[in-house]
Nucleic acid binder design. Structure first.
Length: 685
RNA sequence: GCGCCCGUAGCUCAGUGGAUAGAGCAAUUGCCUUCUAAGCAAUUGGUCGCUGGUUCGAGUCCAGUCGGGCGUGCCA
């Protein structure tokens, strides 16, 4: 907020200097950065503009700095007390205490909203999809990072003025092999048969079976029932973790409404999908450059049968990655650990393949694959939309889904998808999907000369249409990948799976931490404590880097735990304010700037003033850890103030009341910060 | 092979191209007859993996290289 104000001042004096002919107009293009000097001797804020603009202005940095400083002093002595040029050309500034202290009063006005201070220039309508795991298992501690990150990202994006829609995509397509296996497992348990070798065996499967407990139904019925139960469980855990959605979107609904078929027709019409038997693959060189375009000829079913080549029919061993969005490992075996559903089937045997082929053909393609020509849209190869047996792939529903998402909120500008580390290969694919959906039907163009282009595209018209669509897709789809979390206990990596072979679920993590922290507390209190600590730990580190979740530290109810450090500051303020009000009456706003002159008071005010900048920055680079780190810094600055500046002093009522005001501002700012993180701000501890 | 992420204090990690690289944990030592000691202060601890480049200025940007983690290489 202050920074923005200072940048405006610079902008104004630059215009003036340009107007006077002392500087070339180009300097107005240079962005102005106001920084925060580490050394207090360098003033409250500094600006490096003279150094940056030296070349463009044709002046040496020192001289340019002097010119700027002179103008600042002349025009803005009401705000700035001291302006000096230092070192190679930094402009160091001190701000009038009245001006800074005014912000404390602003923070305390009843209708003050964070958004008003940190609002971005052009608010967007944004759809954020996060977590979205398959409804065939509990939310794991791996998905926990995505849940904490995604929900706080939404809060932050909203705080800077965007309209945000929180969305969960339910992978409930009836063709899902995994959901079918899950249903088979549940059915087997109910009917007293052993779970198929490669079926789902965790405790939660038995819980689902117990709840359903009805025999002799069709497998479709079991699939529907077990899916519904798992989804309810996921919804409830996420709610306890502080995550709420605007929309739970069903994949199957896209098929039922005919949207998927419509999109497929549209893509075929635009020529970006076709039945030609050739698949394009790109050979990539370092740096993402296309080195060569390769073609592979596919065989039809009829030819295939002649060769009796079953191998080619078996869908690649089903990716362990599938249900995952995992995001956490702890054990040396990465594959096993990445999979939050370790008990489920990972391959199909030949018999199952036969059954698939004979049963599951809603549409017959005459044994010919329908390809999305995604290699033309930045992906490294073409992808299958409809298998030879007629079943649609998940990519087909993705096209329709992404089109539909732009309706939530109405007129959506941007889609953000938060994915786990095992999905980073999806970025190109999803971008191609959105590009295919947005693409216009190509005009007929000129033949292409460049070797690679000529191989890849029909003509210049198609190339242009594809490139335009891809550029638009990149603008409108943002995929954020969060990295792995390693859980550490007793200084060693903790297994993702418990001793009994069950998965480590998010709800277990919350309960375990809660029980340790509040052994005497109610279940609800324990869950809340577990939620607070887990959320804070997930959010403390950049989502873009793997980190260790220290369970020992998380379970400590002491000064070592940063969550308590921050919460304690809030509780401490509440206690002090209550006591102060009893002794001195309500806080008033006397002359804050004249009274709050102690170094520790000024440091605290400055930190409070920083929140809008920090929030805006987080909204720009998606770094939610900034908010958690800010919370720690604000708490530290408060504790430091508390230690050096006694609030309640009966012989100095004016000063006491001013400090009470400062405490209230801190309390409010801490609360706002913790709200963004989804962590509670207790009034006493 | 290609892609993504990481390499900063003994450990876990911050760090907006800027001035003397920070915090927490761990270690040592002080501070409660006054507002919550779940707090504060002080001390110790660094070839920012390596080599070049861009720049007035590089932990930060670029190229290369070494090391670690993960993903991916024909129809989930």
């Amino acid at each position: 907020m202050l920074r923005t104000k200072l940048a405006e001042l610079f902008r104004a004096i630059l215009s003036e200097l340009v107007g006077e002919g002392r500087l070339p107009a180009e300097v107005l293009q240079i962005p102005i950065e106001i920084s925060d000097p580490k050394n207090p001797e360098h003033g409250d804020f500094a600006c490096n503009f003279a150094l940056v603009a030296s070349k463009v202005s044709g002046m040496n940095p020192r001289a340019l700095g002097e010119a700027l400083a002179e103008k600042l002093t002349a025009n803005y002595s009401s705000i700035l007390t001291e302006v000096e040029v230092a070192g190679p050309g930094f402009i160091n500034m001190r701000i009038k205490p009245e001006f800074v202290a005014g912000y404390v009063e602003t923070v305390l006005t009843p209708d003050f909203r964070l958004e008003s201070a940190s609002r971005v220039a052009h608010p967007l309508k944004i759809n954020v999809e996060f977590v979205s795991v398959n409804p065939n298992g509990p939310i794991t501690i791996g998905s926990g990072r995505g849940a904490a990150y995604g929900s706080t990202l939404c809060n932050v994006l909203e705080a800077v003025g965007n309209t945000v829609h929180r969305e969960y995509y339910i992978n409930d397509g009836v063709n899902s092999e995994q959901m079918r296996q899950f249903a088979e497992s549940v059915k087997a348990i109910i009917e007293g048969r052993p779970v198929p070798d490669k079926g789902y065996k965790g405790d939660y499967v038995h819980e689902v079976a117990e709840k359903i407990a009805t025999k002799d139904q069709t497998i479709d019925w079991y699939q529907e029932q077990s899916q519904k139960l798992m989804l309810d469980a996921q919804r409830s855990v996420l709610a306890q973790f502080g995550v709420e959605y605007d929309t739970w979107f069903s994949e199957q609904s896209l098929h039922d409404s005919g949207m998927v078929d419509a999109e497929i027709d549209s893509m075929v019409d635009k020529g970006i999908a076709d039945y030609s038997l050739t698949r394009t693959k790109l050979k990539m060189a370092k740096g993402g450059r296309i080195e060569d375009v390769l073609f592979e000829t596919q065989k039809t079913d009829a030819e295939e049968e002649d060769e009796v080549n079953l191998d080619a029919l078996i869908p690649t061993p089903i990716p362990i990655a599938e249900p995952s969005m995992a995001g956490s490992v702890a054990d040396p075996d990465p594959l096993e650990l990445l999979d939050p559903m370790p008990d489920h089937i990972t391959t199909l045997d030949e018999e199952e393949v036969d059954r698939e082929i004979s049963e599951g053909s809603p549409v017959d393609n005459d044994g010919v694959t329908l390809w999305l020509r995604s290699a033309k849209l930045g992906d490294d190869m073409d992808r299958v939309l409809r298998r030879r047996d007629g079943r649609l792939t998940y990519i087909a529903s993705d096209v329709a889904y992404h089109k539909d998402k732009f309706n939530r909120p109405a007129g959506t500008d941007k889609l953000i998808t938060v994915l786990g580390p095992d999905h980073h290969g999806y970025i190109g694919r999803l971008t191609a999907v959105v590009a295919a959906m947005l693409m216009a039907k190509p005009q007929v163009g000129e033949p292409l000369i460049d070797d690679i282009d000529a191989k890849l595209f029909k003509d210049s018209g198609e190339k242009e249409a594809c490139e335009a669509a891809l550029a638009e897709a990149k603008r409108r789809l943002e995929v954020q990948i969060f990295q792995l979390v390693r859980f550490v206990k007793d200084g060693k990596p903790a297994p993702m799976r418990k001793r009994d072979g069950n998965i480590y679920a998010l709800i277990d993590l919350m309960k375990e931490i809660g029980v340790k922290l509040k052994p005497e507390g109610s279940e609800a209190e324990q869950l809340e404590a577990g939620k607070d600590v887990a959320r804070f730990f997930y959010l403390m580190r950049s989502h873009d880097t793997t980190f260790d979740f220290d369970l020992d530290l998380a379970e400590k109810q002491s000064d070592e735990n940063p969550v308590f450090y921050v919460q304690y500051a809030h509780a401490r303020i509440c206690s002090v304010l209550a006591k102060a009000e009893a002794a001195l009456g309500a806080a008033k706003a006397p002359n804050l700037s004249a009274l709050l002159v102690h170094d520790r008071e000024k440091a605290l005010i400055k930190k409070i003033v920083d929140l809008p900048d920090e929030v805006r920055r987080a909204s720009e680079d998606y770094g939610m850890h900034r908010i958690a780190n800010y919370a720690i810094e604000l708490a530290r600055t408060f504790h430091y103030f508390y230690d050096g500046c006694r609030v309640i002093q009966e012989d100095q009522p004016e000063l006491s009341k001013a400090r009470m005001k400062l405490c209230e501002a801190t309390k409010r700012t801490l609360k706002t910060t913790l709200d963004l993180l989804g962590v509670s701000a207790p009034e006493k501890m």
